[in-house]
Amino acid sequence: MAKSKIRIRAKVKGGVTTVRSLMTHPMETGLRKDKKTGKKIPAHFIQEVKATWNGRTVLTAYWGGAVSKDPYLSFKFKGGAKGDTVTIAWKDNLGQSASGQTKIR
């Protein structure tokens, strides 16, 4: 399995936490063709992303192959305090998964 990373930044301001994250993933649609062989490159993309704060789910994203390679995701939620943990976990159509976490700043 390729090295999977999730980079996350979370910052609280005025009671609202803004999270920005970057995941490492090829995000193949399954429609692209290999230029040399002419064969289709099999689909390989993140299908579900779950973001949790202190164990509570704050956002669930369902994705198709049309999210760009190495996906960027930003979202906001009410609550959060400095030092709280935000976790983001994804799983893809091949059953691979990864997660990362950060402390709110």
């Binding site: 609202v16 994203a61 369902y62 049309a66 999210v67 960027y72 930003s74 979202f75 906001k76 939620f77």
Partner: peptide, 29 residues
Amino acid sequence: IAAANATPLVADFELSELSVPFVATRIKM
């Protein structure tokens, strides 16, 4: 949704009661 893509649906974000209705990402068109 990217209207002219072969499969137009790009992403479905399910918000929680805590969410602020805001999402940002990057998509292919």
